[in-house]
Computed example of a mutant assay.
Amino acid sequence: MGTMTGSNNLQSLKYSSGDKPTLAVLDQLLIPHEKKYIDIPDVEAAWGVIRSMQIRGAPLIAIVALLGLAVDLNSNAKTIGELDAIKDDGDALMKFIETKLDYLSTSRPTAVNLFNAIAELKGVLQNAKAKFNGEGTIRGCLCKAVVQHTEFMLERDVQDNRHIGKFGAEEILKGKEGKVTIMTICNTGSLATAGYGTALGVARALQEMDKLESIIALETRPYNQGSRLTAFEIVEEKMPGGTLICDSAAGAMMRTKKIDAVVVGADRCCANGDTANKIGTYNVSVVAAGHGVPVYVASPFTTLDVSLTNGDGITIEERPSNELISSAKAPPSINCWNPAFDVTPAKFIAGIITEKGVILPEADGSFDVPAFV
């Protein structure tokens, strides 16, 4: 397969396939001042960059976790030695691989993509084990299945994002003449995915259609994914009218300037359309509702979680206090509440954009996501 990277010059990861695959990820905590790639030789390293937010974005978290496993099983000397000790016991090999997947699932709790990807791979492995016909070894069969499925996911992510961009752009342009201005929060572009992006992919699609007047990026406190990462992508991609504003300026801009739509990402969409996304998304949705600006959620199919009736069931990750205190230059002894995500109720959402089409709300404002799925 060769080297896999993003769809443009913004590469969130560098992966090389083959008998001894390798993986390196861009340290996003250093962007925009430095581009440094971190080698990922095993699942522990993959877990670490996810947990520390050196990589982030729900689609990218899932891909890095599984690519980390693929590299671990096929290139890491310590893991290869452990596999040698198991020999060719299919059940023991499955348990060994599933234990590593379960460990990866503990890296971050809110983004459902990771859990869906792990469940999908477990199903692939069970199927491969059941169909093993004695050619070669069961170990080779399972390790190959991990690599093949993960590389498939990597390619699929970029294609899915392009479809999200197309459907989203067409939905926003309905009934409008001329170019449009959109607002976004956090980072949902090539740096949050394998390439192209979800919400920022909609902006890219509009740009390719010459229909993007301008894009407004919120700084996204306290980690500043908007000012560090989205602004970086906007500049790198020469998006027209790229403008950075502080989170608290969203309402003032909607009141004084023309904003055609807000487009945000998602870490989990529930059966009724309630959506978890980066902290501050809920605020923007409320302000947008007050100004008649539609809010669209760009959500890959893997982010739809029909097992949860509504947003009350979403586990919201809380980050360490020092992350907010240090970035805000606050007194070290102050009490701190630092949730990484919030939930936007379905009633504030105009549509959920997926790679399979746009889910529109029912008459009561809720969404029937299970019917779409």
Rank of each mutant, 00 (worst) to 15 (best):
199 A>M: 03
179 K>A: 10
23 L>W: 07
124 V>C: 06
271 A>F: 10
368 D>W: 13
266 A>W: 11
142 L>M: 11
187 N>Q: 02
361 P>K: 08
101 L>F: 11
164 I>K: 00
295 V>A: 08
87 K>R: 14
370 P>R: 10
126 Q>N: 15
350 A>Y: 13
113 N>I: 04
345 P>N: 03
318 E>F: 14
178 G>P: 13
325 I>A: 01
196 Y>M: 00
227 S>D: 00
321 S>T: 11
70 A>T: 02
302 T>G: 08
142 L>Q: 05
282 Y>P: 01
240 P>Q: 05
173 L>Y: 02
342 D>G: 07
82 E>M: 13
267 D>E: 03
72 D>W: 09
106 T>K: 15
113 N>Y: 09
193 T>Y: 08
250 A>I: 06
36 K>W: 05
309 T>P: 09
317 E>L: 06
282 Y>N: 01
16 S>M: 10
269 C>Y: 12
55 I>F: 09
133 N>W: 03
325 I>L: 06
3 T>S: 08
272 N>Y: 12
260 D>I: 14
75 S>C: 09
348 F>V: 06
185 I>Q: 01
226 G>D: 00
106 T>L: 14
91 D>F: 11
79 T>Q: 03
170 E>T: 06
19 D>P: 00
167 F>V: 02
24 A>H: 01
210 D>C: 08
155 E>G: 15
155 E>P: 04
340 A>G: 12
42 D>L: 06
96 F>L: 01
11 Q>M: 04
43 V>A: 03
109 P>S: 05
232 F>D: 00
134 G>R: 06
104 L>D: 05
181 T>H: 07
153 M>E: 01
351 G>H: 10
162 R>W: 15
65 A>Y: 13
250 A>E: 03
330 A>C: 03
373 V>I: 12
248 S>P: 01
88 D>N: 15
27 D>N: 11
12 S>C: 13
245 I>M: 04
1 M>S: 12
179 K>D: 01
159 Q>E: 12
47 W>Q: 00
326 S>E: 14
255 R>S: 14
120 E>W: 11
238 K>S: 10
284 V>Q: 02
85 A>L: 07
176 K>T: 13
112 V>Y: 15
360 L>A: 11
58 A>M: 05
141 C>E: 12
96 F>R: 07
16 S>T: 15
82 E>Q: 12
185 I>L: 10
44 E>H: 15
348 F>L: 09
9 N>Y: 07
197 G>N: 01
63 I>Q: 02
139 R>H: 12
8 N>V: 03
335 N>Q: 13
222 P>M: 04
35 K>T: 09
352 I>P: 07
84 D>A: 08
232 F>M: 00
129 K>F: 14
49 V>E: 00
180 V>H: 04
197 G>R: 02
248 S>N: 13
233 E>W: 14
56 R>Y: 03
242 G>P: 12
126 Q>E: 15
54 Q>H: 14
261 A>G: 06
355 E>S: 09
193 T>L: 04
283 N>S: 14
61 I>S: 06
262 V>M: 06
